[in-house]
């Protein structure tokens, strides 16, 4: 997992350049027909981790106990590290002179491609952990599938991220079980969080033309292919947590992947992007 000193290494751009120079050859990067879909798909991956990472980082200094505060900050840093890799590759694919930083800090809300689930407010620890669990359970299946990606660059990022995400899902499912099957209050809060978040979870499994194009190119699985494994994990954990799976549809809220967001994303970006907007090009 990256720590703050890693992320503030002064010659990080040089390190990234050196790393890029030693990358395996990946013909998908030169495929002009595939480019728009590949770029969009990489932004979806990177935007999911950027926005969830930002949301989780909001707990830094506010965690209920010191140990949980640090664990959440670690998770946030992991996700922001994944963002650097996904958006870095997106910038390479786009080949328009933009960097990962440009994509993260200078794109407006309707250009963001994250699912709506990750932009919802934290509210409390119950919502924070339930949302993380619903996402982690998808994330781990997605990255596992991407190990077999026809794009060696994508497979490489997935392998790096999977080590951390394996721990994320272990931690979040453990806490969902402990709090779901905890006190009356923790149970009620976890059930409330699940009921509120459930209608957003399904967007992770909705495919569109972009998904079809990258699936056809052998880069990524079709989103729907991950659903059965995700449901197995979620059902087992919710059952152990004595939580009731909501009966309503889980794919009510959708559109984030296409750039249609809740009102919350604008506020996140306002905070995230303020510095670069106010002081263009400012660096550490």
């Amino acid at each position: 997992m990256p720590s703050l000193p890693d992320m503030t290494t002064p010659d990080v751009m040089a390190l990234a350049r050196d790393a890029a120079a030693s990358q395996p050859h990946d013909p998908h990067l030169q495929d002009v027909d595939l480019k728009p879909a590949f770029f969009d798909w990489l932004c979806r991956m990177g935007d999911n981790t950027a926005i969830l990472g930002h949301r989780i980082s909001e707990w830094c200094g506010h965690g209920p106990v010191l140990e949980e505060d640090i664990a959440l900050a670690n998770t946030a840093l992991d996700l922001i590290g994944h963002t650097q890799m996904w958006l870095g590759l997106a910038a390479e694919v786009e080949d328009a002179g933009r960097t990962a930083d440009d994509l993260a800090f200078l794109r407006d809300a309707m250009k963001y491609r994250n699912v709506q689930l990750v932009e919802l407010p934290n509210r409390d620890m119950a919502h924070t952990l339930m949302r993380e669990f619903l996402f982690d359970a998808w994330h781990v299946e997605m990255l596992t599938a991407l190990l077999q990606s026809g794009s060696p660059r994508v497979a490489e990022i997935a392998a790096k991220a999977l080590k951390e995400v394996g721990y994320h899902v272990e931690r979040s499912s453990d806490l969902v079980v402990r709090l779901g099957d905890g006190t009356d209050e923790s149970h009620a809060r976890m059930q409330d969080a699940l009921d509120r978040l459930w209608p957003y979870a399904g967007e992770l499994f909705l495919g569109d033309g972009v998904d079809a194009a990258v699936a056809k190119a052998g880069i990524a699985p079709a989103p729907g292919d991950l659903r059965a494994a995700w449901e197995r994990t979620v059902d087992a954990v919710l059952d152990e947590a004595t939580l009731r799976k909501p009966e309503g549809r889980f794919d009510v809220h959708r559109g984030g992947k296409q750039g249609r967001h809740t009102e919350h994303l604008g506020f996140i970006l306002a905070e995230m992007q303020f510095l670069q907007r106010a002081y263009p090009g400012a660096s550490w």
Partner: peptide, 21 residues
């Protein structure tokens, strides 16, 4: 040292607090 409700969480917390690097 750190606080944790049980042994399993003590190991998890130790991982997060003391093995970040």
């Amino acid at each position: 040292s750190l606080h944790a409700p049980d042994a399993e969480m003590a190991i998890r917390h130790a991982r997060d607090v003391y093995t970040r690097r």
